[in-house]
Nucleic acid binder design. Sequence first.
DNA 1: CTTGAACCTACAGTCGCTGTAGATCCTATA
DNA 2: TATAGGATCTACAGCGACTGTAGGTTCAAG
Lengths: 142, 142
Amino acid sequence: MLSIGTLAKRTGTKVQTIRYYEQIGLMPEPGRTTGGQRRYGTVELDRLAFIRHSRELGFSLEAIRELLDLSDSPERSCAQVDAVAQKQLHEVEARIARLETLRVELQRMINECNADRVADCRILEVLRDHEECLSDHIRPGG
Amino acid sequence: MLSIGTLAKRTGTKVQTIRYYEQIGLMPEPGRTTGGQRRYGTVELDRLAFIRHSRELGFSLEAIRELLDLSDSPERSCAQVDAVAQKQLHEVEARIARLETLRVELQRMINECNADRVADCRILEVLRDHEECLSDHIRPGG
DNA sequence: CTTGAACCTACAGTCGCTGTAGATCCTATA
DNA sequence: TATAGGATCTACAGCGACTGTAGGTTCAAG
Ligand SMILES: [Zn+2]
Ligand SMILES: [Zn+2]
Ligand SMILES: [Zn+2]
Ligand SMILES: [Zn+2]
């Protein structure tokens, strides 16, 4: 039986994070000592490791919840699991594309600044006016 | 003189967001009508446009605050402005690098899954055990 | 003058944690 | 067995950058 601190160390999680996962129903309520402290077994260890690894790969807690639910039905088709992963891949690709646009624009601003005075700084000029940008980095809806 | 709604439309901002910027001191307190409604001029319009464009390029509100302060001293060297932009560029590059790692790992998981049952799903296998990953996508500190 | 869209304040909620305060528990050593 | 002090407990506030809501007031068009 593991204390919450030991479980935290074994999975690279903070203690508060484990309690937070319990609070939102992502981790089950564990057994307690007579004094009221949480005690965990290997099932909980494996579940938490799954959650943390999925988080490292960028999955949202909602997606992880879905993956955990799906993995409780071993005989079902894994199409839904694959769909969740596909969606995550698309989101990552979209974020990369956006950041790549920003990278190019930032690099260009920085390269073009040869001024020494703030009054002539190319970076500030570009920030003041999107017309100075080459790319359309404006997100739909914010 | 512009109402908050007109200012919002002109800059692609939500009305609440403008009030939020005022609350945190990023936008100045504007004049008011006798009835208490905010009225803005071109100075505020330009400032908000600057803020929004900087946000589009991924700058944090703290960085934007610094840029706005710096641009109030036109005779000073723009070295600090350039440093803020450089830092932002590095952050964007770091995020791209991390997401690229995730993209490769996600793509591999998805490609390797030929199973039809959840029990044999390669995606779940990988999520259960980071040893199945090729890359070290673990962030230092969570 | 009436209507209704836009505005006002104040506050709660989002996501995924992280930090704090003050109390209690567990365990190792004397 | 007594005590010290690290670990744990609950409850709540805070982060960034907004977004949404409720309930009330103001403005401008017709
Ligand atoms: Zn410059
Ligand atoms: Zn631009
Ligand atoms: Zn599969
Ligand atoms: Zn991994």
